[in-house]
Design a protein around this nucleic acid. Sequence first.
DNA 1: ATGGTCCGGGG
DNA 2: GTGTACGGACCAT
Length: 884
Amino acid sequence: MLEFQILDVDYIMLNDKPVVRIFGKTASGETVCAFYEGYMPYFYARGKGVLDLLKNEPLVVRTEGVRRKFVFDNDEAKEVIKITLRNPAKTPELREKLRMNGVKPYEADILFKYRFMNDVGLGGLGWVGVAENNISTNTVKVRRVIKADKLTSIKRDEDALLKYLALDIECVPITPGAVPEARKDPIILISLVFNQEYKGKKSLVLSTRRDQYVMGFDDEKAMLEELIKIINDYDPDVITGYNINSFDFPYILERMKQNNVRPVFGRCNQKYVVARKVGMRYRVSITGRIMVDSFEIVKKDFFLQRYGLDFVAETLLKEKKEDVKHSEIEKLWKGDQEGFRKLISYSRKDSVLAMDLVLKLNLVDKYIALSKVSGTLLQDTLDSGETARIENFLLREFDKEGYVFPCKPDGAEISKREKERVVGLKGGFVLEPEKKLHSNVAVLDFASMYPSIIQTFNICPTTIVRNGGSADVIKTPSGARFLPKETRKGIIPKIVEELMKNRRRTKKKLERCTDPGKRSALDAEQWALKIMANAFYGYFGYSRARIYDLDIANAITTCGRETIKKTANTIEKDFGYRVIYGDTDSVFVKMPEEDMKKIYDIANDISTKITKQLPGIMELEFEKVFKRFLPLTKKRYVAWRFIPVEKEGRIEWEEGMEMKGIETVRRDWCGLVSDTMKEIIEMILKKDDAKGAVNYFRDVVISLVKGNIPIQKLVIRKTMTKSPGSYVGVQPHIELVKKLQARNPAEAPGIGDRIGYVIVKGTQLLSKRAEDPVYIMEKGLQIDSHYYIENQLLPPLERIFRGLGVSKPELLGNGKQIGILDALRNHRAPETKPIKELSVGEMNGFICSKCNKFYPRVPLIGTCECGGNLLFSSSQGPAEWVVT
DNA sequence: ATGGTCCGGGG
DNA sequence: GTGTACGGACCAT
């Protein structure tokens, strides 16, 4: 018996019959492909004259009457026709023909590979056992090809060791200065990085220019052919890169087409690698391998200001990227050897970073876990959303219970649902918060509220009672009624229960596990189980769902609304505490105590007692304490948070800041805004010093007006996506590029470059006053402090201060006394001082400009105790700013 | 408020 | 491949 883990599944037609192929890897790292013959595509149909319609249909192998249940049909099995056909690809044709004739098809849009996997009991990244019946074929590129008569699903937790390849290309336009187009502009450089050494190498760079550091080629065609050879030879399971799905691979494939190179580098020798355009993006599929785009995952899993590789590598990996602007590539390529070598190392580094992102941050772990829970193939888990996972999962469960699964809704149905949803779907209950700064707030919340509700009230499309008055039903507050589980347990509640049970088990395992690699996988697993359990509620209210039902979606949310209202009420009436805020599944309770231990006891007492009164498995838990809590509006607040963690029987508190619905980082804000916001929020919350926060804000304003803020903190970045001439409106970064072109055409930014600009003082239109930071320093220009105050700092900060009851005039010191802005109006900012450059390495702390007190780190208040501004300090004394 | 358009990442 | 699948910010009616 040979056991392997499933990486990919597809099928081919052989002698007019489908053959399913399961690609995978053994624990020892051997590649395997199992061929399975004799499995035929089928679906179901119900309606008048089905059999007559199919009588002389050549696509059909056979029809048979079977008894199946229907999702909203109260468990009553009815006759339905099971249609088996010859070719999976012909299913849509037959399906539409039936629809035209008023026949309703079921399960007629399930991908053949998933139909097969679900019937046989296999799933993405699951393990499978086959008898070692080796055959020989040159159609697939794997170590062992097996003809499988029987496939046995095996329960096994570990993962086969995967081989990774990271890739990055560089290309240069034929027309100088243009943006490269795959149709005509060649690839000049390809860098490859291997996680397992390839011919003794960790990386490799191919190029059509010769150099001792690259593998050189006479032309692009020869280079592309070698690329294919290397991929096939190294044989990676995963191919990664930064934005490879939307850039590198579509580009490579187009170049191969132009050069008449056949793109065959998957594990099937007959199938070309293709990039399908889907919406504005591309999706690349390579048989037997998995494409992992580290850019797409980082964008989904991390919230960052920007997603350029340079920024991402620096924030996530603390690694620097080679500094080469897009518009420079052409010059380096055509220039001297030194420049070319810079290009080589730039490209190599990009691949290294793409690989590091995936491996050091365990980017794939979550998706592996989701695949295992839902059964979807890893590639599909990476490419598609929640719906695909849920539906694949549900199809299996409903099939097992003897139900037929509905087809996807058509366009008309979707838009009908979208309209009714707007008015018909109720969300969670949100209490209007008392808008002021609160202290000592205990946050209690319901553990997995919606999954608990589904189980408690047995909410399911298979248990909903629509009409007729069975006396024995569960009534939910929305009016929807469900059979009690004693009568019949619903499929969804059963699934949710199973998922939650598994999650508890996994969390226990995680507690005991010390191996860091396994911990990461276990943590991903418990996360995936939670995600899946929580996804059902949203699914029934999603307009593209196969099982869509607003009554069910509303039954769930209404139960939640009632529960939270009742809970808040009980806490106020029976326990005598004030509930100052609540949202969907949480209540925020004002504590009459300062002492954390006492708060802990009170909050736990409340939650235990309320849990006892709650129906079913609903459970209220004490989650955390907000030492300070500042609500701005519904769903938006900042808080200083303490989470209790039990350690050896003692309670320790994990301290941190929490912000909900507050943008602290935004692409079009400069660094000063996020810095100031962070500082001010901390002063308000941690020091309870609203006055100090106002003063701090005023200090920033004054520094700004005096020209004391480092220019780097004022830089706003935007990308030039097309030539400056083709912009219709005036935009700051484009106006700056025009100026830079006039000053020095050779050094000016090109299309695709990110342009950092600062707004300077002047009478012209705002956009015309965008200036290059370096130029500002050289010429000693004055920045437009008014712009930075009104358009950058004030909009977000005013919202926060309003929460404290501080109005904008008060903030700026207008009012009785003379406002700071008025006082400064005639103050001429000094010319920017000459720069003293300082590298991070030389910097050893901060020093007060007034009293010379030294600080290794910036104190919380942001200024010296004496109120003086802090400067960077080095062994050579204080410096204006740090150049990194 | 609601709806269409632009843009991101990559070179 | 029995599939159609951004999403947020910004601007204009």
